[in-house]
């Protein structure tokens, strides 16, 4: 039963992994894939050249952690409400609408956020001015951006993510709730004692999947919101945007692959250790 799946992954995922070899070569079209000269770790150098690499790692990791925690908290909250509000009509409409941002491309999100935050005729500054408050030049000051970026990411993933939790909640046996109610448990107690424990496995699954890609980032999110505004880079630059800026003028196959390999190795080590840790506490929750 599982054979076709294994074959699929061998052919379409494992075979192409030889491509990581490119990260260690200087590619030459005449020589092709395996005969291009081996250059060791030279392709990785540019990552460290600027001396800001540790900051990039910090930003990338912190953003991903914030996306993970904030995103899941919001999604769980929505799922809890949506699964329990009495008006089915309201639930249906609301559920459909919170899925809409998922379909809005990052390009459009970028356009909207400029319309919202710019100093000249941005919505927020217009409101500030009409209230007699002093204006706030978002695009010159980095402080507000982490919050903005995290909020937008949560907003965009809300519908998609809450569907996962909704379907898990809908799978919980109703009898458990009924007996809890008969025992006099309040709504909040039911949530805390029944629902949340039941969705724990899903949350752990999400965490594990995100850890593997903790150094990878939503390139489009950052690129469309911040673009080439260097003033904001200190707090908005992640590895992917840095690599993009470095290579956009002069793309090099080897250097492009090198960044990916670095991110993967880091993620792999992290996941393996966290999985081992999780396994200690609960065999059930571990991924493998």
């Amino acid at each position: 039963m599982i054979t076709p799946i294994l074959v699929y992954f061998i052919i379409f995922a494992y075979l192409p992994m030889v491509g990581m070899w490119l990260a260690f070569t200087k590619f030459d079209f005449r020589l092709g894939f395996f005969k291009s000269p081996f250059v060791g770790l030279k392709n990785f150098q540019y990552l460290f050249k600027s001396g800001i690499f540790s900051r990039l790692i910090r930003n990338t990791v912190l953003y991903n952690v914030a996306f993970l925690l904030g995103g899941n908290a919001a999604q769980i909250l929505c799922a809890l409400f949506l699964s329990d509000l009495p008006s089915k009509r309201f639930v249906k409409i609301s559920q459909s609408i919170i899925f809409l941002p998922y379909f809005i491309s990052w390009v459009l999100v970028g356009l909207f956020s400029y319309a919202l935050f710019n100093i000249d005729n941005g919505v927020i500054n217009t409101i500030f001015r009409s209230l007699g408050l002093s204006e706030y030049n978002f695009y010159l000051k980095p402080q507000a951006w982490p919050a903005i970026i995290i909020a937008i990411q949560i907003w965009k993933g809300l519908g998609y993510g809450s569907v996962v939790y909704l379907s898990v909640i809908s799978g919980i046996d109703q009898e458990i709730y009924e007996s809890a109610r008969i025992d006099g448990a309040s709504k909040w107690q039911q949530i805390a004692n029944i629902t949340l424990p039941m969705i724990k496995a899903t949350f752990v699954l999400l965490v594990m999947f995100n850890l593997g890609s903790i150094l990878k980032g939503q390139f489009q999110l950052f690129y469309q919101l911040v673009g080439n505004n260097g003033l904001l880079f200190n707090v908005t630059d992640i590895i992917d945007t840095y690599v993009y800026r470095s290579l956009v003028v002069n793309f090099d196959i080897g250097m492009g692959s090198a960044a990916g390999v670095f991110q993967s190795v880091f993620g792999c080590i992290l996941v393996l250790s966290v999985n081992a840790l999780v396994k200690r506490f609960s065999e059930e929750l571990a991924l493998f």
């Binding site: 970028g110 356009l111 400029y114 935050f117 710019n118 100093i119 000249d120 030049n137 978002f138 695009y139 010159l140 911040v226 673009g227 080439n228 505004n229 260097g230 003033l231």
Partner: peptide, 8 residues
């Protein structure tokens, strides 16, 4: 605009 770098 002072926001020109981010203008689309």
């Amino acid at each position: 605009s002072s926001n020109a770098l981010s203008s689309t």
